[in-house]
Each structure stands twice: as structure tokens, then as C-alpha cells.
Design a protein around this nucleic acid. Structure first.
Length: 582
DNA sequence: TCTCCCACCTC
DNA sequence: GGAGGTGGGAG
């Protein structure tokens, strides 16, 4: 497989020297978390039953070769105000599902790290917060990175650039310039239009998420996934077992998460690396108009442009401006290593294989047993009024418009507090866990009306105090119910934590959806990983807490519907979600 | 860096 | 034929 997340640092992390650890072919794993002390044996059993079968689910990324091509160069995805589709499209083949069981498939895209990137000199640089032009301040990448010449010593700009070859982004080796990443956008889930559907349905053909759109509009009313430009992201696929109401969100919802590190990308408003542009043009049918470089093509374009002389395709012109080699000069793919590309990581297209670390040809889904969002010691989660105890009183529909006020905890929560105990923090995906669950069948919100319905708050059907610690909030994709943008908590590396099979809950999905993907997850470029409840409870907390407090009734999302849901969550109590409630 | 508009294309 | 997906380029 390709470097997978390596390209953007997803697989690399200082101190993490076993990227291949746990590597498995398309290994799917369920999100689990260590049971908290409060977890009853009955609950554990119930959970185990719920999880049963989820481990057998396998997911294969469609068109992995194409993804790998992009990944080797450094995938970029255009984001626009109106929303732009991803290319390559995210399509998967799912097997191992129970033919008669109904599942909900959804995607989310989480930050790959807390860095902002800059493309210069044909390479991606990581901003780490220091001033530019200070070679001695360059950060080095993860030590022990074979073939990359990484070392623990500070590196000069030139050395840094060398490091960026193929691993530029991932190694976080470069110089710092502007600082940390922009606050993460509220995580949104893109529920596959076919959801819920039986295992037989999902297994019948490829599951495509090609209609998913990315936007940089923080106030996006269309439900598109909101991203920040020049930031790294990692798409994730979640497979959730639908509950009796064809929804999800109940406490014991079983689910598994799959991550293909080669699908990591950097969001941009315009392509930075011309190699990516060429790959897009050559492979995306909609960009066919930009293909071609032979005489006929040039004449055709000249004619189209009202000129009587051959013109060079725009893309070609631009490429030439960027490199000495013409992308169209050799083969149809237009990817040529220009002279300047020699020795440059991103310039080695044909030499990608040569230049990039040798990786297995295939990339099994990354298997992660835990979400990995963690706050650094001392990091303070953001809290909303509606949180915790207040939530019980105010988390009603009326809280919808006034939850934008946030405050920060005076200090970092201690592990002793159930509130922040990792085990209590399997972040429920939207509607999962302790909140009123989402149902995908009764009230479709594919239509506008559906969307509106989706935005409605839960009535009194569920008492907040009956819910366990984590409450999920969903943002309404409609303009009238815009989700306030709350930043994700600052990204921080986090240690992996052990998991147990019981904790698997959809609730974990949501949690994971927003915070930066734990680097260790990406470490294994060969796995799709499944993640369990987030380890980084604090981080998750921060994110959750940072979201507006909104309570929705169980959703019945029958397709077609509004497929995107915000995944911001908040913690209301200190009881582990699976041990609380009912 | 971003937005808007354009021509060209697929569906 | 029209809606909508492309990247380029002007600003």
C-alpha cells in the first residue's frame, strides 16, 4: 500500500516506532473501550452480544491503487463554499455483514493532526508555530524513519526539505511559520443514503460515498462536511448496526470503524501540487476537458479559445510554471519527474516507488482499537453551560439557540473523575449512546422537510437524567438551524489505550469523528482500523463540550435524507456511557 | 489564500 | 437538454 497516512503524518509520530504494528489486511475491528468499574456484568454481556458479528465485518477500499497514487504524491481535496466532491471517490466493498441485519453506514472526516500546512518549493511544510526563515528551528520528524534520514537533531531548511520527500507532511519536520491549526470544525457525519439497509444490500455492490461534499464554509447549511483549508484530514467509515427502530444512538449500538490511511488528504481551496492536479485530470471524468496535450488537442483548445494558433492547456502551462518538466510530455498521465523533482519527494512521480519507503502493496484497513483523541496533560476541555448537571435541566429544544456560550474548565479534569475517565468516554456518534438514539427509518430527512425534522429537538421523550454521561448533539444542516462552529480542542498526541470488547458503541464514533485522528492509528498504513471508544476522553470531552447543547429525539432517517449530521457532543455526567442509564 | 466565473465535461 | 462536477484563471 501506499504510505497511507504517512504522507501527511498520520502514520508517523515521534516516539511511535512501530507503524506496522498490528497490521492486518482489511481488518475490521470494533470500537471498544475498557469497561469502567461501573460496568455491570450484564451490561458487558449485552455489549458483547451487540458486538458479536461486528468483528467479522471486512471492508476493502475500492480503487485502492488510485488512492495510493494520490497518496504517494500527497492527496489534496478541493474544498469550496458550495461544496466539492472528493476525488478519488470513497467507495468500499463490505463483507462479513449479516445479510438480514440492518446496518447504517456513515463517514466522517477527522483532523489528521493539529498542524496547518503550507506548500512551497513543491513540498508540503508543517507549520509549527515558529517564525519563518529560521532553519535552526526546524522541527525534525520521527526518529528512526527508515530512508528518510530522520534524526533527532534540529534540521536546516534544506534538510527539512529532504525529509519532506514523500513524508513531508507526516514527519512534521519542517519549519514553523504560523502556528497551530485552525480550530477544528464541528464534526459532521455523512450517512450513506441507503442507510439503513440490510447486510445483503450493502454486500451486494460497492458502497459509494461519492456524493459526499467538502466545504470550507463554516456556516454551511447543506450538511456538507466542513474542513479547514491547508489542514490534513483522515476519512473514516463507520458501520453501525441499526437498532430496532432502524436507527442508532441507543446505548448498546454496535459499530465498527474503518480507516484507510491512504485516503488521508490535505484540504485546499486550489491545488498546490501540480502532480495532484494532473492525477485528478487524468482520472476524474468530469475533468476530461483538461486532458490532452497533443497537437490536435492544442488546436482544439486554440479554436475553443478563439485563437488561430495552438495553445497550451492551462494545466500544462501552469505545470510548466511550476516545474521544468511538462506533465504531458511523456505519457498520458502527464506525471513526469522534472529536473527539479529529482531528489524532491513530491516530484518523484514515476520514482515514487523508488523514493517512498517500501510498503506492502495492499493497505488493509487500519484497525484501531481505540479512538485516540487525547488531550495533553493540562489541556482544558471546553464546556458548555448545558453540560453536566445543567444539561439535565436545560437540554431541551429551547437550548438550541443559546448554547453558543462556552466556558472552559478551570483545570484539567483528573482521571479520578468519572467525568473524564477514558472509559466513560466512548464518544457516541450522533444520536448514539445515551442520547435519544437516531432512527433512520421513520422520518427520512432526505428532503428539505426531512432535514428540518432532523433538526428538531427531542421532546420530553427522554429525560436527560436518564441518559448517561455523554449527550450527543446534532447540528441541523439547514440555515435556520446552523450549527455554531466550535473548535475542536487542540490536538495532542495521545497514548494508545487498551480496549475491551464491551465498550463498543456508536457513541464512540462521534467522539472520534472530530478530534484529530490519533496518530498511532495512522501508523499502520495497512489497516483500516476500527476504533473503539476514544481513549482520549479529555480531548473528546473538549470537543463535545465545545459544541452547542442540542438534544434531538430519536431520528428516523430513512433515505434519501439529509445525510450529514454534526457530531459534536458534550458530556453531561461522569458515568461511563455504557454503564449509565437504563 | 480565497471566491467567482468560465468552458468543458459527465450523467 | 439540463443539472451539476471539473480545474483554470482573474481579481
Amino acid at each position: 500500500m501506499a504510505n497511507g497516512g504517512d504522507q501527511f503524518g498520520l502514520a508517523e509520530r515521534p516516539g511511535a516506532d512501530s507503524p506496522k504494528e498490528g497490521k492486518q489486511e482489511n481488518r475490521s475491528f470494533t470500537l471498544t473501550s475498557a469497561p469502567s468499574p461501573q460496568t455491570s456484568s450484564q451490561q458487558v454481556e449485552a455489549c458483547a452480544e451487540d458486538q458479536e458479528g461486528m468483528e467479522a465485518i471486512k471492508v476493502a477500499l475500492h480503487d485502492r491503487e488510485l488512492w495510493t497514487k494520490f497518496d504517494e504524491v500527497g492527496t489534496e481535496m478541493i474544498i469550496t463554499k458550495a461544496g466539492r466532491r472528493m476525488f478519488p471517490s470513497y467507495k468500499v466493498k463490505v463483507t462479513g455483514l449479516n445479510p438480514k441485519t440492518k446496518y447504517i453506514l456513515l463517514m466522517d472526516i477527522v483532523p489528521g493532526d493539529d498542524h496547518r500546512y503550507k506548500f512551497a518549493d513543491n513540498k508540503w511544510f508543517v507549520y509549527t508555530g515558529r517564525l519563518n526563515h529560521q532553519p535552526d528551528l526546524l522541527r525534525h520528524g520521527a526518529p528512526g524513519r527508515a530512508g528518510l534520514g530522520l534524526s533527532d537533531k534540529p534540521q536546516t531548511l534544506r534538510e527539512c526539505q529532504c525529509l519532506t520527500v514523500f513524508k513531508s507532511i507526516s514527519l512534521a519536520p519542517c519549519r514553523s511559520i504560523t502556528g497551530k491549526a485552525e480550530p477544528a470544525m464541528p464534526g459532521r457525519l455523512y450517512v450513506h443514503p441507503d442507510s439503513p439497509a440490510t447486510g445483503a444490500h450493502w454486500s451486494r455492490q460497492l458502497v459509494s460515498f461519492q456524493k459526499l461534499k467538502l466545504t470550507n464554509n463554516h456556516l454551511d447549511p447543506f450538511g456538507h462536511i466542513i474542513l479547514n483549508s491547508m489542514h490534513k484530514y483522515q476519512p473514516r467509515l463507520h458501520i453501525v448496526k441499526a437498532d430496532e427502530n432502524n436507527g442508532f444512538g441507543s446505548k448498546n449500538t454496535a459499530f465498527c470503524t474503518h480507516v484507510f490511511s491512504e485516503t488521508a488528504f490535505i484540504a485546499v481551496t486550489s491545488y498546490q501540487n501540480h502532480k495532484i492536479t494532473q492525477l485528478k485530470i487524468e482520472n476524474n471524468p468530469f475533468a476530461k476537458g483538461f486532458r490532452g496535450s497533443d497537437d490536435n488537442e492544442l488546436h482544439r483548445m486554440a479554436k475553443l479559445q478563439g485563437k488561430d494558433y495552438p495553445v497550451v492547456p492551462r494545466s500544462t502551462v501552469r505545470q510548466r510554471a511550476c516545474s521544468t518538466g511538462s506533465p504531458f510530455s511523456r505519457d498520458s498521465r502527464g506525471l513526469q519527474a522534472s529536473p527539479e523533482a529529482v531528489g524532491s519527494p513530491y516530484n518523484c512521480e514515476s520514482g515514487l516507488n523508488r523514493c517512498s519507503p517500501q510498503e506492502p502493496p495492499s493497505t488493509p484497513a487500519t484497525h484501531y482499537s481505540h479512538p485516540h483523541l487525547h488531550l495533553q496533560p493540562g489541556q482544558q476541555p471546553q464546556l458548555y453551560h448545558c453540560h453536566k448537571r445543567k444539561a439535565d435541566e436545560n437540554c431541551s429544544s429551547r437550548t438550541r439557540q443559546h448554547l453558543y456560550k462556552k466556558h472552559f474548565t478551570s483545570g484539567s479534569p483528573s482521571q479520578g473523575e468519572p467525568y473524564y475517565h477514558p472509559s466513560s468516554y466512548p464518544p457516541p456518534p450522533p444520536g448514539l449512546s445515551n442520547n435519544p438514539p437516531l432512527a433512520l427509518s421513520d422520518s427520512p430527512y432526505s428532503s428539505d422537510m426531512g432535514q428540518r425534522q432532523a433538526c428538531m429537538y427531542a421532546g420530553s421523550e427522554h429525560r436527560l437524567d436518564e441518559l448517561s454521561c455523554a449527550s450527543w448533539s446534532y447540528s441541523c444542516p439547514l440555515p435556520t438551524a446552523m450549527t455554531p462552529m466550535e473548535p475542536y480542542p487542540p490536538y495532542t498526541p495521545h497514548p494508545p489505550y487498551s480496549s475491551s470488547p464491551q465498550g463498543s458503541r456508536l457513541s464512540a464514533i462521534a467522539h472520534q469523528s472530530s478530534p484529530p485522528l490519533p496518530e498511532h492509528v495512522a501508523h499502520d498504513p495497512y489497516q483500516s482500523h476500527s476504533s473503539g471508544p476514544s481513549q482520549n476522553s479529555q480531548n473528546l470531552h473538549g470537543r463535545q463540550l465545545g459544541s452547542p447543547l442540542r438534544e434531538y429525539p430519536r431520528y428516523n432517517l430513512s433515505p434519501p435524507l439529509y445525510h450529514t449530521l454534526d457530531t459534536t457532543t458534550h458530556i453531561r455526567c461522569g458515568v461511563p456511557e455504557w454503564s449509565a442509564a437504563s
